[in-house]
C-alpha cells in the first residue's frame, strides 16, 4: 500500500491531491512503525507527517500554484538511474541479517546496555525517553538547535524583512 501511494504521488500532477496523498503516506508509515514496536516514532510521524507538513504544504501551494506542468524532458534517463541505484542498494541488502533476528549486530552493541542500565540508573519506564533526554542528551540538544536554526531561517526568508526593506527602496528610486 505504501508503494502504491508513493507511485500514485509520482504520477499525479494536481498538487492538492499530491499533498493529501503524502499525508496518507505518512499515516500508513506510522502504522508500519507501530507494527515494528516503535510507538514513539509512530506517534511523531502521525503528528508531524500528517499534521504539520500537510498544513505547510497546503500553505505553500496556496501561495504558489496548484497544477504541475507536464515535463518536457524524457523520464527515461532518471528512471534508468533510479533502477540502477535501487539494484545496487538491493544487492547491498543481501548481506543484511534477517528481519527480527535477535543476534543481528545492531542488538549486540549499546542498545541492550541502555535497556538494562536505564532500569536502575534513570528509573524512567519509557526507555526511549530515557535515552533521548539522558544518555543522548547532547544529540537532542544539538537537534533542538537545528530546529531553532530552521525556524530562524524560515523567518528570515519569508517574514518581516520585506516590510523593513521597503522604505529603503523608495529612497533609492
Amino acid at each position: 500500500m505504501l508503494v502504491a501511494t508513493a507511485i500514485a504521488i509520482a504520477k499525479m500532477d494536481r498538487l492538492f491531491a499530491v499533498v493529501m496523498l503524502s499525508g496518507v503516506f505518512s499515516l500508513l508509515a506510522a502504522l508500519l512503525f507501530v507494527n515494528m514496536d516503535a510507538v514513539d516514532v509512530a506517534f511523531t510521524e502521525a503528528a508531524v507527517g500528517a499534521g504539520i507538513s500537510t498544513v505547510l504544504m497546503l500553505g505553500t501551494i496556496a501561495l504558489t500554484s496548484r497544477v504541475e506542468k507536464p515535463s518536457t524532458q524524457s523520464p527515461l534517463i532518471p528512471l534508468a538511474a533510479c533502477i540502477v541505484t535501487g539494484a545496487a542498494l538491493i544487492y547491498g541488502t543481501l548481506d543484511m541479517p534477517n528481519f527480527g533476528d535477535p543476534n543481528a549486530p545492531v542488538h549486540t552493541h549499546v542498545g541492550p546496555e541502555y535497556l538494562e542500565n536505564s532500569q536502575h540508573e534513570i528509573g524512567v519506564p519509557n526507555v526511549v525517553t530515557a535515552i533521548l533526554a539522558s544518555y543522548r542528551g547532547y544529540d537532542t540538544l544539538g537537534e533542538t538547535a537545528v530546529v531553532f536554526t530552521a525556524g530562524i531561517g524560515v523567518l528570515l526568508l519569508i517574514s518581516g524583512l520585506r516590510r523593513r526593506r521597503d522604505p529603503d527602496e523608495e529612497e533609492d528610486t
Binding site: D40, V41, T44, V106, P112, I131, L132, D139, T140
Partner: peptide
C-alpha cells in the same frame, strides 16, 4: 525491541 534506532529516528 532495540530502543536506540527509535531515538535516532524520533529526532
Amino acid at each position: 525491541s532495540n530502543p536506540l534506532p527509535h531515538v535516532l529516528i524520533l529526532t
